[in-house]
């Protein structure tokens, strides 16, 4: 067993695990944060997307020990003081989900996308950036709408702050 210590949503958290344990299972089973989902387990669907050291990754394809020492953000760490993150609010507003299973990964992907390319997103860019996330309910239409709306809202927020 190896002790893995991570900064999770700003807090230092540790757990013991076998070296073969996947990061997503560590997050769900050892840290009891079950917002991050396991969909396909084959790096296809993106339900397990989290941020590791500021970049989106698929936590089903990384060992927990590989992440040892890193800072991760999960869906639970996104909203501040019970207020929805603008991306979460946009998904709600634009009905960007039906069953909700893919939503944590979709939202974490959208936040990463806006962090990297915010202010310049177009429908085409959003659709190509969603390459690694699968939704079986929505047909993606409202997800794309939600991401674009959140991007516009966050860009306006940045402008107002300047």
């Amino acid at each position: 067993m190896t002790k893995v210590t991570l900064t999770v949503n700003g807090r230092t958290m540790s757990g013991e695990c076998e070296d073969r344990m996947l990061l997503v299972h560590f997050i769900r089973e050892k840290l009891a944060l079950t917002g991050t989902h396991v969909g396909c387990d084959t790096t296809q669907c993106g339900a397990c997307v989290i941020h590791m050291d500021g970049r989106s990754v698929k936590s089903c394809s990384i060992l927990a020990v590989q992440a040892n020492g890193s800072a991760i953000t999960t869906i639970e760490g996104l909203s501040a003081q019970g207020e929805l993150h603008p991306v979460q609010a946009a998904f709600k507003e634009h009905h960007g989900l039906q069953c909700g299973f893919c939503t944590p990964g979709m939202v974490m992907t959208a936040v990463d996308m806006i962090n990297r390319r915010g202010g310049s997103l177009t429908e085409e860019v959003v659709r190509s950036e969603l390459e690694g996330n699968i939704c079986r309910c929505t047909g993606y239409h409202n997800i794309v709408k939600a991401v674009l709306a959140a991007d516009a809202e966050m860009a306006a927020g940045r402008q107002a702050a300047e």
Partner: peptide, 9 residues
């Protein structure tokens, strides 16, 4: 290559 998350790793 792959998707954005794969390209990060």
């Amino acid at each position: 290559i792959g998707d954005p998350h794969v390209r990060h790793m």
